[in-house]
């Protein structure tokens, strides 16, 4: 029998038991506002869409996601509760998936709290709702992928700061892989196949179509595969190294 529910409940409420997550949430929303309106010039562009919001969104998740995921396993190791939970009658798979679901739910709360920006463009004009919805789905999937990476990396250390940095670095590399700067650089000397391969593992390559409202099953599957791969790695890391 799966006993996911109590794990998800505990982990999710743990975010609200300490002020840390709330602080990150407020910073995320604050920066979202700045990047969308000041840097992205949502008003000045004169277009009723959320492109500035979604263009900066992955970069903001680049610090929010590690902040959410860093404690998932590192904290269990630090205070020794890993010995408690792994000797309860619950599988490591359920623990890993439950923790990730709780983290993802928290990230989705952050996304839901940005909805006033959507309401703003609805008030100002007639935005393409498909594109906005696609952007939100893309953002949620991107956050899910970041959090799976962060959860797996938090399983290798007792130190939350180390977990934060590892997750931010890996997610940064996966984002950058899709940027023209990197692809142009590769295109200069590597064969086109290499550049294409690098671009295809970039999360950004699979996010951008959704931002335009194109939800391709292949892109969704890509994010699902990233999540599955890193959660699987997470399970292995806990099984192999739970006592270290």
């Amino acid at each position: 029998m799966s006993r996911l529910a109590p794990i998800v409940r505990r982990e999710f409420s743990a975010y609200f038991n300490t002020p840390l997550a709330a602080v990150f949430l407020v910073m995320f929303l604050f920066l979202t506002g700045i990047f969308t309106f000041n840097v992205g010039q949502l008003y000045e562009r004169g277009q009723a869409d959320l492109r500035p919001f979604f263009d900066f969104n992955p970069w903001l998740f680049l610090f929010l996601a590690p902040a959410i995921s860093m404690r998932l396993w590192a904290e269990e190791r630090r205070i020794g509760t890993i010995e408690l939970v792994t000797t309860l009658p619950i599988s490591i798979r359920d623990l890993v998936v439950g923790k990730w679901l709780a983290a993802w739910a928290f990230a989705c709360v952050a996304l839901v709290l940005t909805l006033p920006i959507w309401l703003t463009v609805e008030y100002l004009g007639e935005p393409d709702r498909g594109a906005i919805l696609g952007g939100y789905v893309g953002s949620a999937l991107m956050a899910g992928a970041f959090l799976a990476i962060g959860s797996a990396l938090s399983a290798v250390t007792k130190n939350q700061v180390v977990a934060f940095v590892l997750c931010a670095v890996v997610c940064f590399l996966l984002l950058m892989a899709g940027y023209p700067v990197v692809l142009d650089f590769l295109g200069g000397w590597a064969s086109p196949g290499v550049a294409e391969a690098v671009a295809s593992v970039s999360l950004l390559t699979h996010f951008e179509p959704m931002e335009r409202g194109v939800i391709d099953l292949r892109d969704v599957l890509f994010f699902a595969a990233v999540v599955a791969a890193f959660l699987w790695l997470n399970i292995l890391l806990i099984e192999w190294k739970k006592a270290d």
Partner: peptide, 18 residues
């Protein structure tokens, strides 16, 4: 080891649920 952020009631409730 126990979860320090939980109350006794929450913690024992969690163990019971698991």
């Amino acid at each position: 080891p126990c979860y320090p952020d939980m109350t006794v009631a929450e913690f024992l409730g969690f163990i019971g649920a698991v």
